[in-house]
């Protein structure tokens, strides 16, 4: 559980480049060059994780998405 929390935090910080405490659509688009996902796919990831659709992805929302991913997968 701690490992998952640590990973969630690491990933959130990778996206939240300026350490704002939330991730914007622009932050997500910036990952385009770093991750093998198209801008459309990154947009879809953002929309899926941003459960209240306010345009800001909080750590809680991000964490929820990551938890559901982990629970549906075999974690290495």
């Amino acid at each position: 559980q701690n490992t998952i929390q640590e990973k969630t935090h690491e990933f959130f910080q990778m996206c939240d480049i300026k350490d704002k405490g939330y991730i914007t659509r622009q932050d997500m688009q910036r990952l385009n060059g770093e991750l093998p996902l198209s801008p459309e796919e990154l947009e879809r990831v953002f929309d899926t994780l941003d459960s209240d659709a306010n345009g800001y992805l909080t750590f809680e929302e991000f964490s929820l998405g990551f938890s559901s991913f982990v629970s549906g997968q075999t974690f290495p």
Binding site: K7, E10, F11, M14, E34, L35, P36, L37, E41, L42, R44, V45, T48, L49, G65, F66, F69, G72, Q73, P76
Partner: peptide, 29 residues
């Protein structure tokens, strides 16, 4: 059900996203 299909597609793209983050962090594909 189109909603279920969209949900499955979103799960797929989320899995790709988190898998990519994991690979990036560990340095393995």
């Amino acid at each position: 059900d189109p909603n279920m299909k969209a949900g499955a597609a979103n799960e797929g793209v989320l899995a790709s996203f988190f898998n990519s983050l994991l690979s990036k962090k560990t340095g393995s594909p």
